[in-house]
């Protein structure tokens, strides 16, 4: 590895407990799709990753996982941060990525080729962490399914109709599919493959 041009930012200061607290937030988010959680830790200066994306990487990634970075995130600083703190290698092949970090949902448009798992091992799929500007439980799409008592309104200005159509198609492949974690600078929410999505009529036109 070439010498970093600048000092690598600090990761977790208390690996054991900060990992656990971060995991708890991610687990709860995955178990209650669309519910918005404050990130218990924000990891600054993690290359191009936002602080909650960085928290997620430190919590879930290690030498046993391969990471995909979209173009905007794939900087030497990001790669150095991830290599130093997690030991995870990056891959340019979305199919091989256990975790994909995306600067926007655009990388999911079209034939994105992230791994949806297979029918015997649907767990062998990619988890996609997407940076968004905002998260809100207000009119946008309506989520339902496991983890949601009746339905949950969910919206983000960073997620357009094309994304939601893609997410609907992803759910239609259940139990195959990718799982999404949305991260702002301070918060997170998740959209596992099991969640059914109803596009808002106004948006659906």
């Amino acid at each position: 590895m070439p010498m970093p041009q600048q000092a690598i930012a600090q990761g977790f200061t208390d690996l054991t407990h900060q990992s656990q607290q971060s995991f708890k937030a991610i687990m709860d988010a995955m178990a209650q799709p669309g519910k918005i959680y404050d990130a218990p830790h924000k990891v600054d200066n993690a290359g191009a990753l936002n602080p909650v994306a960085a928290m997620t990487a430190l919590t879930l990634c290690d030498a046993e996982t391969l990471i995909y970075l979209d173009e905007a995130l794939n900087t030497p600083e990001t790669r150095q941060f991830l290599a130093f703190h997690t030991g995870a290698a990056t891959t340019s092949d979305p199919q091989k990525a256990q975790f994909a970090f995306l600067s926007s949902a655009e990388a999911l448009e079209g034939d994105h080729n992230f791994n949806m798992g297979n029918h015997e091992y649907p767990d062998q799929s990619s988890t996609v962490i997407i940076a968004v500007n905002d998260l809100a439980n207000q009119a946008g799409v309506t989520l339902s399914g496991p983890g949601i008592e009746t339905s949950r309104a969910f919206a983000s200005s960073s997620l357009n109709q094309q994304f939601w159509q893609q997410a609907e198609a992803n759910n239609a492949e259940y139990p195959l599919g990718i799982d999404h974690i949305f991260v702002t600078e301070t918060q997170l929410a998740a959209l596992p493959r099991s969640t059914k999505i109803k596009l808002d009529p106004a948006q659906g036109e």
Partner: peptide, 14 residues
């Protein structure tokens, strides 16, 4: 723990 946590997330998703 990380390995088990990853498995738990998959279990929750499916």
């Amino acid at each position: 723990k990380r390995m088990i946590r990853r498995a738990i997330l998959k279990g929750i998703a499916v």
